[in-house]
Design a protein around this nucleic acid. Structure first.
Lengths: 198, 198
DNA sequence: ACAATAGAGAACAAAAAGAGAACAGAAAAT
DNA sequence: ATTTTCTGTTCTCTTTTTGTTCTCTATTGT
């Protein structure tokens, strides 16, 4: 599902202030911060974010909370397709895959299905299952899951430029590298392993 | 279809600013950026770009979006350093691996480590672990582990020829298919799945 | 003269955004 | 326990924004 401008704005506000929350914000507080005078109006937007899976309603009357990933006990969550134009967090109920230990890292991982051929030159094909170590930063040259503008999640090689911008390099000779300001790109994990069925 | 001067101008503007978009631009915004005072005028040009396939209209009322830029592929072959024109060995792992059920077939399987780049065009890379279903025959077009003259085991696509001979097709545009009499080639299994660690 | 190109501006339908009232349940205060 | 306050939710209504379509005018090139 696609966010409207205002919804994106509100989500950014939430995401930006998430650290400062000691308690989840109430609707009235958010209305004040966002310059709204009607809770009803805000509620409509929040509901859209909830539908998009970006935000979690809290039990009772305690506002809302940003979605966080929880590590599973058995297996790793399979979060659906990457590069489908949707943020990773958008998938509500992942199913779980059993993956052998040697295919995981020692840190929390999740799995994605690859869509598209942007990494075909290093043997990552459409439909492959990739295991991703959950991380919010990566070293130069690592292959990462990057969320662009909270809209699109893609698998690309990361290049941190000296001017602070970020380049996402596809491994496909027919595709061009893409350049972004740092704040538009959010690393959601790094590639750990790959599974493919024939 | 050919673009007029203004259309090209507008397209360039879109393409140049595409990476700065957090959301698709609205007509009013574009008008302001382009120095137009009438949305109707802009609409005519955008419509031309849409007809030309350079731009994608968006659902609802959320502006336009650049179509993904696909370069006309000149078909430059990948100049890998491939010296060995001979079949490539696939060496069995000495120990046992834990492999999840969904990566196996219902019949006995074993695992091999791929050496070489003969199947690189379908994303099978040097060092990959492949799961092979144990079999002594295969259908045309299946990817098999073939033992040649009881000497070398290779992973190739199988082609049974009408004259009784067998062709082993590498999936690598820089390599040539190899032809053998049937009695020199022994199928040892067919490809089931693939595992790769980064 | 004629056609193609470019722009302005009005009018319209639909979507998005917002305001405000009303309501039920939870928490807090009495 | 009872009342009061606060919170999330739902509803209707209005305003603003946005894409689209239309007519009209100006400019340019052949």
């Amino acid at each position: 599902m696609k966010l409207t401008r205002r919804q994106q704005e509100i989500y950014n506000h939430l995401h930006h202030n998430a650290e400062h929350f000691t308690h989840p914000p109430t609707y009235d507080e958010l209305c004040h911060e966002l310059g709204l005078s009607s809770r009803g109006s805000l509620h409509k937007h929040i509901q859209a974010l909830i539908d998009a899976g970006l935000v979690e309603p809290m039990a009772g009357r305690q506002g809302i909370r940003l979605v966080e990933w929880e590590q599973a006990d058995a297996g790793i969550p399979h979060l659906g397709a990457i590069a489908a134009g949707r943020p990773i967090e958008a998938i509500a109920q992942p199913d779980f895959l059993e993956v052998p230990d040697f295919m995981l890292s020692q840190y929390p991982c999740y799995a994605l299905t690859v869509k598209g051929e942007s990494m075909i030159d290093i043997g990552i094909m459409d439909g492959d299952l990739v295991v991703i170590e959950k991380r919010d930063s990566a070293r130069d040259g690592e292959i990462v899951v990057a969320l662009i503008n909270n809209e699109e999640a893609t698998l690309k090689r990361l290049q941190n430029n000296s001017d602070g911008s970020v380049t996402l390099l596809p491994e496909n000779s027919t595709m061009e590298p893409m350049n972004y300001p740092t704040e538009q790109v959010q690393v959601q994990g790094v590639l750990v392993s790959l599974l493919r069925r024939y």
